[in-house]
Amino acid sequence: MIEQGVVESAGQCLIKGSKEEAVSLARQVIDGGADPVELMNLAFIPAINEVGDRFGRGQLFLPELITAADAMKAVTDVVNEVLSATTTVRSNKGTILIATVKGDVHDIGKCIVTSLLQANGFRVHDIGRDIDTEKIVEQAVQHDVDIIGTSALLTTTMPRQKELEELLKAKGLREKFKTMVGGAPVTPRWAQRIGADAYAEDAQDGVRKAEQLLAIAVS
């Protein structure tokens, strides 16, 4: 049972971007005997979603989103630590591989997407930026992911997203994964044209689309 006060405090910590307060709140509640999974599901995940929504509505801004995601990550680490000690298995909505494509070194947006996906209970393998298409496929197979998400911030690197689709087909792996594309110049039209399964406008949309792709009922 998570008290309403805790839910509100969690929200405030994240909106303020206060990592210390968020971690100390989490520790305090867990030490008080609360279920860490419930703490995440009922307090921190709704809180980070609220932050994402407010960011989407233009009420919170990028530095605030980054600090909130950072605080959320610290809380997630605390919770995972407790859980691995108590061997309870944490719910995992699905596994996602994220990369910025070859030739493209942008990673601000990709890191935000990674944080929000993790915050929402996905297991995310962020393999970095400037990643070869071959390597993306290789890593996706190795980690046995559900979704491959690629970011391209340049019109010159967008074709790599198409290359990924083609390489997956050539290797007979296309049906094994869902694909999601994003990045400033990327459009729904591009996604459709290259045959990607989803286009995500921003990080919050990325979470939504990932849930849709894996047919997860959205709370």
């Binding site: 019109t155 010159t156 110049p185 459009t187």
Partner: peptide
Amino acid sequence: AGIFVEEE
């Protein structure tokens, strides 16, 4: 006309 890639 960068977003068009092929027709750029």
